[in-house]
Simulated scan of single mutants.
Amino acid sequence: MYSDQERARHTWEQVKQDLEQLAEAEPETLEDAQRHEAMLHLARLRAYIAVGRVIALGRSSLAHKACEEAPISLLYKTQRSR
């Protein structure tokens, strides 16, 4: 089963590939160029959101791990000092 962080990384990779493909595409007409620019802008926003989610999930999992161990270490130090 995938974790939220793994799903977010997979989504980021997919969005990044889609953005690269869209950036390489050449519009044929002026109307297509305007549509292409709008789609490219939207793809960049999606990529920004996707990478932000990966970063946020990474930070939260690291913070969670740090918080799990803090009380144990404090308890151990308190017992040794007595």
Rank of each mutant, 00 (worst) to 15 (best):
E20N: 11
Q21D: 15
L22K: 01
L22P: 03
A23G: 00
A23Q: 14
E24N: 12
E24P: 02
E24R: 15
A25I: 09
A25S: 13
E26H: 11
E26N: 06
E26V: 15
P27F: 05
P27H: 03
T29D: 04
L30G: 07
E31I: 14
E31S: 10
D32R: 03
A33E: 06
A33S: 07
A33C: 05
A33Y: 04
A33P: 01
Q34R: 11
Q34F: 04
H36Y: 02
H36D: 05
H36P: 02
H36C: 02
H36I: 02
E37L: 10
E37Y: 09
A38S: 01
A38M: 07
A38D: 10
M39L: 15
M39Q: 15
M39W: 15
L40T: 05
L40P: 02
H41Q: 07
H41A: 11
L42C: 07
L42N: 09
L42W: 12
L42A: 13
A43Q: 10
A43E: 10
R44A: 13
L45S: 08
R46C: 08
A47D: 14
A47G: 08
A47Y: 14
A47Q: 14
A47P: 01
Y48D: 15
I49T: 13
I49Y: 13
I49L: 13
A50Q: 00
V51E: 14
V51S: 12
V51M: 08
V51T: 12
V51Q: 11
R53T: 10
V54R: 04
I55M: 06
I55L: 13
I55C: 05
I55R: 13
A56F: 03
L57Y: 05
L57I: 09
L57D: 09
L57V: 08
L57K: 08
G58D: 02
G58P: 02
G58C: 03
R59W: 03
R59L: 08
S61D: 08
S61R: 10
S61V: 05
L62I: 02
L62T: 01
L62M: 09
A63Y: 01
H64R: 11
H64V: 00
H64Q: 14
K65D: 04
K65H: 12
K65L: 15
A66K: 06
A66C: 04
A66H: 07
C67S: 05
C67H: 06
C67E: 12
E68Y: 02
E69W: 04
E69P: 03
A70W: 05
A70S: 06
A70M: 01
P71H: 08
P71R: 06
P71E: 07
I72P: 00
S73L: 13
S73N: 09
L74W: 12
L75G: 04
Y76V: 10
Y76L: 11
K77C: 06
